[in-house]
């Protein structure tokens, strides 16, 4: 019952070593390999995900910066356009005012000329009527050059008085 059998001890040691080699290759080796591969896979996935996140964050920042830039740009363009429009408007206004002034002075000049012409016409008309009336009074025709000069002198005296 309690006797040690050297052959059995030796056999068992050999058996254990053989069993160890078998199980290390077929059981523990394979399962550990799978476990390691999986942990490597998970690590890789996590690293890739973190990388992606960081890239996305960077891209977001970049886009935000671009958006801000674009907004500034837009505001600047609008401001430019407004100031240009303002300047253009002022130019146009000045020009229009100048035009209006010019037109008015031209119209005034024309009115003055027309008035002159009308006055002259009216004066000659009145002179003719006066001559006719004087002829009727004097019972003779007053169409000599002397008569005419006389009437003109009279009329200019009248207009100066008026």
């Amino acid at each position: 019952m309690l006797e040690f059998e050297p052959a059995t001890i030796l056999f068992t040691v050999i058996n254990l070593l053989v069993l160890y080699l078998i199980l290390r290759k077929l059981l523990f080796g394979r399962v550990n390999a799978v476990l390691e591969q999986r942990s490597a896979l998970v690590k890789g996935k996590i690293a890739a995900a973190e990388d992606n996140n960081r890239q996305a964050e960077e891209r977001k920042l970049q886009y935000e910066r671009q958006l801000t830039d674009a907004r500034h740009e837009g505001a600047k363009i609008v401001a430019d356009a407004q100031s240009r429009a303002q300047r253009l408007y002022e130019d146009k206004m000045l020009q229009a005012e100048a035009d209006a002034k010019r037109l008015r002075s031209a119209a005034e000049a024309q009115i003055a000329t027309e008035r002159e012409a009308m006055l002259r016409g009216a004066r000659s008309e009145v002179a003719a009527l006066a001559l006719m009336a004087a002829a009727k009074v004097a019972e003779r025709s007053m169409d000599g050059a002397d008569d005419k000069a006389l009437i003109d002198t009279f009329l200019s005296e009248v207009s100066e008085q008026a």
Partner: peptide, 21 residues
């Protein structure tokens, strides 16, 4: 060289474990 029962049973266990693995 005597081969004990225990050694033979050990071989059976080894075969079983190897086959199962």
């Amino acid at each position: 060289i005597p081969v004990a029962d225990s050694v033979v049973v050990t071989w059976i266990i080894m075969a079983l474990l190897a086959a199962l693995s």
